[in-house]
Amino acid sequence: MNAVAFALLATMIAIYVILDGYDLGVGAVVPFVARSGEERAAAMASIGPFWNGNEVWLIAAGGVLFALFPRAYASAFSGFYLPFTVVLWLLMFRGIALELRSHFSSDLWHAFWESAFTGASALLAVLFGVALGNLVRGLPLDAHGYFLGRFAFLLNPYALGVGLFALLALAQHGLAFLALRGEGELAARSARLLSRLWWGVLLLYCLTTLASLALPTGSAAQAPLHLAPVAALSLLALGGVHWFTRLGRPAPAFAASALFLASLVLAAAATMYPYLLPAFPAGSGGIAITDAGPGPGALGVTLALTLPGLAAVVLYALFVVRRMRGRVGSG
């Protein structure tokens, strides 16, 4: 039963990464693909109606973590207090930048908020990667499961590598989105940059995977064969991004990029399982799904309430996206 709760949480996080991933990615790549003010406006307008709904997946996942695994929720956010507060500030700043940009038709005003948006988006992508890297690597926890280390502990080479990888993977996702929803030169330039950036993503994927296998912690080291099918899926999806981009088919390329991100979340979740917060160094336990878990009753209630709600969300979100479809022009 606790495994179901873990799976629900991982699924919500994967959806969050796929959805907010493309708008973070668009933020990170805007200055590289949009040349004119009109193109930058178009790129930002392409995510305007959606970023807010995408971010709600983070809030909903946070709520579900709170309800299902209160101890892990309490330990994670108090333990990561400062880095997490920085993430919150960046999320706020980024949202404000996107919303405020269009309110004045002044080039200076636009330039400031565009830079703020790009900087905050890129930094968020890196920080999410660093957080994920640390989760996979494990954290020093005290007897009650509270994080003992300091800020510097989180900035280890492995986690920073995952951070860089996350930035490139989300940039790729954002480019795939712009290639799909952008118009004319904006879409073409995005596709071209995507096929170049792809090699970087591939390289960092291989390096990150090798580094994860070398980690003395987690099930990756104990049973690498477990993760072989997930790795195969990642490589297949990554190959698909390149293949469909070269064929000039942005929709399947975007879908392949989404699948790639989902496979990465799956790999991370499978490495951590059965821990929500694995301890560092390896083998010293952590907060597992069983000792932080809800009773079967609470889990049933949460699932019964959450799943129909999420199903409804998916239905009406698809409806809205279909109604709002069409490429965004520079007008």
């Binding site: 709600v56 309800a67 299902l68 101890r71 929720y73 309490a74 956010f77 108090s78 309430l305």
Partner: peptide, 23 residues
């Protein structure tokens, strides 16, 4: 979770529920 960890760990199974539903 960040500032009120002991409260969250003790009562999260209850108050997390309406907060999750809000999302």
């Amino acid at each position: 979770g960040a500032n009120w960890a002991l409260f969250s760990a003790k009562a999260g199974a209850v108050i997390g529920q309406p907060l999750a539903m809000e999302g």
